[in-house]
Amino acid sequence: MKVDLRINGVSRTADIEPRKTLLDVLRENFLLNGTHAGCEHGVCGACTVLIDGEPVRSCLMFAVQADGYEITTIEGLAPAPGELSVIQDAFCETHGLQCGYCTPGMILSAHALLQRNVTPTREDIVEAISGNICRCTGYGQIIEAVQFAARLRLANTPRQAAQTDKSVAEAK
């Protein structure tokens, strides 16, 4: 079956069997091996990708169902080849990865969270990654990494409020 997919902003076409999951097609047809195959039945979250910006398990979706959506994999997060996104950088800084198997899924779940909530509480972060299992049990540093990434993103955002404060100060 012929399917048109939009992956990391690029349109791609594949001729695939209906029984192939989005996970298998990303890895085997498009060599996007950053999406990890864990349990392959929807338990572990290692295969998480973003569909229209929301985290979804790519092993629980057939590729033939994925046309018309904007699919983002871990390869699509960094601003340029060889660079890291803020969240990826934060995971390195806080030792948020041990074996690294769950990391792409964790980072994509965290990315979706920070896109809609710039100041998440610890509970928000725990809820957001509740569908991702870290078999090394390194949750402590993963939560720290997301908290650190949230702070970094906030610090790097040009703030309108700051400008308003300044203009108020100037007016005085």
Binding site: E54, L60, G131
Partner: peptide
């Protein structure tokens, strides 16, 4: 609804 599965499964 927050008790139904996890955020990624609730998205689908």
């Amino acid at each position: 609804l927050p008790w139904v599965g996890h955020p990624p499964t609730r998205n689908r």
